[in-house]
Design a protein around this nucleic acid. Sequence first.
DNA 1: CGTTAGCCTGGAACGAGTTTCAGTGACTCG
DNA 2: CGAGTCACTGAAACTCGTTCCAGGCTAACG
Lengths: 202, 202
Amino acid sequence: MTAEAKPAPSQLTERQEARRRRILHASAQLASRGGFDAVQMREVAENSGVALGTLYRYFPSKVHLLVATMQDQLQQMHETLRKRPPTEAEPATRVAQTLMRAFRALQREPQLADAMVRALTFADRSVSPEVDTVSRLTTAIILDAMGLSDPPTGEQLSAVRVIEHTWHSALITWLSGRASIAQVKIDIETVCRLIDLTAPRD
Amino acid sequence: MTAEAKPAPSQLTERQEARRRRILHASAQLASRGGFDAVQMREVAENSGVALGTLYRYFPSKVHLLVATMQDQLQQMHETLRKRPPTEAEPATRVAQTLMRAFRALQREPQLADAMVRALTFADRSVSPEVDTVSRLTTAIILDAMGLSDPPTGEQLSAVRVIEHTWHSALITWLSGRASIAQVKIDIETVCRLIDLTAPRD
DNA sequence: CGTTAGCCTGGAACGAGTTTCAGTGACTCG
DNA sequence: CGAGTCACTGAAACTCGTTCCAGGCTAACG
């Protein structure tokens, strides 16, 4: 056994880390162009200068790849949001504002958003850990936006989960052209009211 | 032009209607066994005694087929629920009760649920009309459960949309093993609180 | 410096969704 | 009855995700 175990995705050669980044970059680029369908494994492999087999060693399926891409993008968004926190006073409004900001970012790359969100909801059990990571990231973003002074109560966590549900599903309806941007805004604002409802009383 | 136009899905020969039903039945049966992946177009065609090309004439893609299957199942559920309306007094509780009842029905056929829900969220723009039908059915079920005496206000419709979002997304997290049944219950009860919040004041 | 293990490459091969088409059958109109 | 039309059949073909394999490269170890 070598000194370094490899279960964690962190323990990678520099070359390997570079490969991984190239793959994610190619994935995002193709997705930006044509959405989910345009991310073709052969093409991702070619564009990132890697053999098909290698691509599959890094990401065991197209869905894994796209979920990882989403993880990557979310991470960046989290950074950005951290730098410019929401300006509103009320937690509910802050969360709504933050989510709408994120939503506008997605609007700029609708095809990429399509690919990532479709992958996320299409993911089966084999991708659960990765999807869970995305979910935790989203939760973190929302909790940040709430700006709580105390750790969240169970009730508040429930509210946050429901907000996440709404966020994902609203995104889908928008991406599939069944809801307008205004509609999404209303839905988000509506669900954010749950935050007031679950605020500790005293 | 023949007397019967064919744009509506209603205008079908008896033989055609029968074929359609056979196809939907085969689809649901295969889905019940092995979920989304087990619904293989060739097999659906064979099991319903129809050529592959014909299957594709009736349902232009696997997703279309499964969304139609869901439509079918939802319709049945709507009937059932109509016969035994929720017993609770409060609208919010009635809705939660109804959704949990539907949820338990899905638990009995988890694989079928998996196939239908995955198809629903994976559907792209080309399936929008069909997905929309499913959405309207769901809305109808929820509104029924609310048992309003007056037509719903805009605010209430927003709340219903958010409930639907939560319902779909919670279902997905449960199907992919990332949330327990108890978790789903809590989420549904949480989001149903929005109903109280949006009830007309006087 | 040679050896060995592990990763990577190129490419073939397989499976399932989707498309296509020539031929067949049934029904309608003349 | 004959011709035309349209849906259905059977089967081949195409695409793209995924799997597999044989050989080459790298890097640490002896």
